[in-house]
Write a protein that binds this DNA or RNA. Sequence first.
DNA 1: AATATCTTCAACCGCATGTAC
DNA 2: GGTACATGCGGTTGAAGATAT
Length: 315
Amino acid sequence: MRSMRAPSVANRMCNSREDESELRRGPWTLEEDTLLTHYIARHGEGRWNMLASYAGLKRTGKSCRLRWLNYLKPDIKRGNLTPQEQLLILELHSKWGNRWSKIAQHLPGRTDNEIKNYWRTRVQRQARQLNIESNSKSFLDAVRCFWMPRLLQKVEQNCYSSPSSTLDSQTHAIASASSSNFEQVANSFSSETFPPQPKLTQYSNPASEHSCSVTSSSVLSTDFIPISHQTEILENPASSCPPLLDSTVYNNLLLSDIYYVENSGYGMDAFNPASMPEFDTFGDSTSECNMADGNWVFDDYMADPLWNMNDMWQV
DNA sequence: AATATCTTCAACCGCATGTAC
DNA sequence: GGTACATGCGGTTGAAGATAT
């Protein structure tokens, strides 16, 4: 919420000075980008107001700084966020909240703006579709017990598909930069000799007793369990986290395509509604599932998935 | 094909903080 | 300590492209 406080003297002066000249606004042109890039290449960054005028740009120093940091800087990574990066964002956001620049420091080449946009467009959208607040405990539980395990699974799949780049250097950088337990997870992927791991599909089913690879000790502190320990969880289901979600969220999740069986995806082997004693736990559940052409279909709902993981992967 | 609606993301804004004098 | 200015941060906006009707 914007504050109604009056601008500071410094900012008023800055603005009035800006008003005096004809400053350009809106999208940057190629010519402006070139001017800025060449000037910084010769003189370095910083002193943005001075830089703007010396470079011959009719822009504010703030605008130049933003353009450089968010777009022109050579080490900016472009393209979709990888599952590893998404996982790290979720993890770090659970720790620090909307501290975008702090989070961005742990994702080399990604800007705070990009991460903020990712959170608003992808994460908060899912919360809206689940009809819950994105900062509510229910949503955090959903993220922790559904989304994060699936991202871990995606990461693992990537490891198998490209064993030579189990974790590329950037991911190693992320892992080492993070003081969280993500490092453990990343390291568990990093060995070229890592043993074959059990499928993680079971983790995505909160109704199952062995549903989740992420502990439930604290909503705000997601402790990832290294892959090596996940085997133990599979073998000892009682050690994993219990379902934490309230019935509304849980039912929404059930009705979403998180359980949808994808041909190339996560397989049916671990998902069997018949083996889910809690499937009818919530008496008001409207879900009915049928087997159709090898896929489980939740009547009327699949056309409007509430929790579309493919949207989240961005890949 | 035309129009409406939705989604994304670059860019903006106000404010807080840092720094030099 | 006070002032002026620069920089950084997080919230918000709106144009453009994508998708649905």
